[in-house]
């Protein structure tokens, strides 16, 4: 008999703190599987964000560094420049990467830092209780937009991936989703590509992952997945951006 599937070595076999239906668990697992498949577990250094994934280092079984809220791309720059032989990636949410960390993100991309970024977009701040995120959809109700996001006062959903794609030093940007098994397979392929680009010294790669937050979208898990398919991915179209 041939073993064709097993638990990833890079993922600790522990329960996570994530809510039922949350996408982080899937995304963590995809990263762990990719690290195993590329045989880079002993070379990887992850940078964990501030947000729901703040304790990602409790789940991944490789070297990890904390970053202050939004500063992951700067911390990753420091690690990668000091140890160019290691594989350095950040894992960040929408508030971390596209609000408080916009500056660090844009400039790491513009320098063409040879790092990989897994960007989890769930259109809301989870850790702090469901506030407006830069990626919150128009009309979407949050703790700080009780009447729904209005363009006139909160502006439009920020498409950071499309913005970054304009930068000449950026190698690869793709937007994927976790709303169905087929999409998860595509997401894994894209994240793997982002890591491979770094292994091959090709430069800055980012994968934006549309991920469900049933808790703060106030929906059952199944409906949250459908909402990504039917609503969120219309605002944030899936596919290769650069």
């Amino acid at each position: 008999m041939k073993k064709i599937f097993s638990y990833p070595k890079s993922l600790k076999n522990v329960p996570t703190h994530y809510c039922p239906g949350c996408g982080h668990g899937i995304a963590h697992r995809l990263v762990a599987e990719i690290v195993d498949e590329l045989g880079i577990r002993e070379k990887v250094i992850a940078v964990a964000p501030v947000g729901c994934a703040v304790v990602a280092y409790d789940y991944w079984d490789f070297d990890c560094c904390e970053a202050a809220h939004g500063r992951a791309a700067a911390v990753a720059t420091g690690i990668k420049r000091a140890r160019p032989g290691n594989i350095v990636f950040t894992y960040q949410g929408d508030g971390d990467l596209a609000a408080i960390g916009t500056n660090e993100t844009i400039h790491a991309a513009n320098r063409g830092e040879n790092i990989s970024i897994v960007f989890i977009n769930n259109a809301v701040y989870g850790m702090t209780g469901g506030q407006l995120a830069p990626t919150t959809l128009l009309g979407q109700k949050t703790a700080t937009t009780p009447e729904g996001r209005k363009a006139g006062s909160e502006g439009f959903p920020l498409k950071i991936s499309e913005m970054l794609a304009r930068l000449p030093a950026v190698k690869y940007i793709e937007r994927v989703s976790l709303h169905s098994p087929q999409e998860v397979i595509k997401a894994k392929k894209a994240i793997k590509q982002a890591f491979l680009n770094q292994v091959n010294n090709l430069g800055f790669s980012l994968v934006e992952v549309l991920s469900a937050c049933p808790t703060y979208w106030d929906m059952p898990a199944k409906n949250a997945l459908d909402w990504i398919r039917d609503v969120m991915s219309k605002e944030f179209p899936l596919g290769r951006i650069k």
Partner: peptide
């Protein structure tokens, strides 16, 4: 790009042993 980024780059480099 900023003082914030600079000091956090230093944090990363130091964590990596530099």
């Amino acid at each position: 790009e900023s003082e914030l980024a600079a000091v956090n780059m230093v944090l990363g480099a130091s964590a990596a042993g530099a």
